[in-house]
Simulated scan of single mutants.
Amino acid sequence: MPSSVVLVTGVGGELGGKLLARLGNSDRLERVIGVDTVSPSRPAVDRMGRAEFVRADIRNPLIERIISDAKVDTVVHASMNVHPAGPAPRLAVKDTNIIGTMRLLAACQRSPRVRKLVVKSTAAVYGAGPRSPAVFTEDSPLIPTSSRGYVSDAIDMEGYIRGLGRRRDDLIITTARFANLMGPTVDTVLTRYFALPVVPTIFGYDARLQFVHSSDALAVLERATLYDIPGVFNVAADGVLTLSQAIRLAGRVELPVPSSALPTVVPALRGAKLVDFSPDQIRLLNYGRVVDTTRLTEEFGYTPRWSTREAFDDYVHGRALRPVVDRYALAALADRVAASAATGQARTS
């Protein structure tokens, strides 16, 4: 049975707002309702077609009435926030992530019309550490850096969803674990980090990073909404970039600092309202994270259009980041230094 009446949460965010607009122009859907405590962006409102916006808080029991009165059959939960772009009240974010999810899932469980749930999750649930596998699969254990961090909210959310699946085994549940979003209009801790003129890194580490372009993330959520494809899927682009490569591509200046200096650097960036690094983000910059996307292409039926490198280049060009240093000159200098070091090593051997 195809979806007919869809409710999307988190439409005040970039991805949720664009999904609302995309679904609002689909001839396959009878009705599309977006809910959030803040309105979608103006571009999303201008393009939302037949979609409707309802100002509502998913932490409020009213969400159950909205689902029931509108005869919603498909719920897309896109409001989970584990990467606040800047400083944010931790308790408020956690309350929305946890209490909001519990209210929403309870409403889905009690509504006999709801037949499908699509969830925007994050690949950060796998954690990042010195003993992490080179590539995470969907069956890898979920390990938060901190039991009180933002990523622990996503792990708790997925636990609640598995519980809902056991209580309502008739539900079709699709969970998409996204790598870090990248694109010209994406505003996350990482996009702000790479826009800093001087980018602090942790001395002795050069993490492997994997991104997903926001347009590919949008396409995955749309496909999961329109088609019945149950399961858990890693969503990421092909290829990886090391942290140092990404910094050079952005034309930034890398500033390696010892890990002992982080207690000074992180509060300074947070106090300037530039970037708010959580423990999960710091470990990502230490150890990196790469996920396997075989299940996405073979079972879900989607291959990302943008590679990790292409997604990052589009972010750099779309933001019109003016290089602090010329990246080609910097790359040539790095090559000369490497060649000189190799020559010196050969002479001493």
Rank of each mutant, 00 (worst) to 15 (best):
S79F: 08
R131D: 15
A268I: 10
L29E: 04
I173G: 05
S132W: 06
T201I: 08
F211N: 04
L15K: 13
E254N: 11
A331V: 07
N180P: 12
V118S: 05
A246C: 08
V6T: 09
R115P: 10
T308G: 06
T74M: 07
S146D: 13
S140Q: 04
D27E: 15
F136H: 15
F277N: 09
V325F: 03
A219I: 14
I33C: 12
L262F: 11
H77F: 14
D292C: 14
V54A: 06
I143G: 02
P141W: 11
L171K: 09
L196H: 07
A272C: 11
G49I: 04
D153S: 12
S79Q: 10
H83K: 12
Y160F: 15
D170M: 08
S140T: 05
D57E: 13
G165S: 13
L262P: 07
S79R: 08
L23P: 00
R42W: 12
M102Q: 06
A346P: 10
P267G: 09
R347K: 08
T201K: 00
S214E: 12
T348Y: 09
Q109P: 02
G16C: 07
D280N: 13
A236K: 06
L255C: 02
S340M: 10
S132Y: 05
V189T: 15
A338V: 05
S259G: 13
A179Y: 06
P230V: 12
R65S: 07
G231A: 09
L221M: 14
A154K: 04
R115S: 15
P256L: 04
V199C: 00
T188L: 11
V198E: 09
T191K: 14
D228T: 11
S140L: 02
L142V: 11
P256K: 02
A195T: 15
R252N: 11
V199G: 00
S39G: 14
L19I: 08
A217H: 04
G10V: 14
I66S: 03
S349K: 12
V38S: 14
P197Y: 08
F233H: 12
E158I: 08
G239T: 02
A154E: 03
N97K: 01
E138A: 13
F300M: 00
I229M: 06
A224M: 03
G318H: 05
G12E: 12
T174N: 07
P258I: 09
F203Y: 10
I282F: 02
D57W: 11
A107M: 02
S4T: 15
A246S: 09
A123P: 00
F53P: 07
I155H: 04
Y205N: 01
G288W: 01
A261N: 09
H213S: 01
P130W: 01
A21V: 13
D187A: 14
V316D: 01
L196Y: 06
V82L: 08
D46R: 11
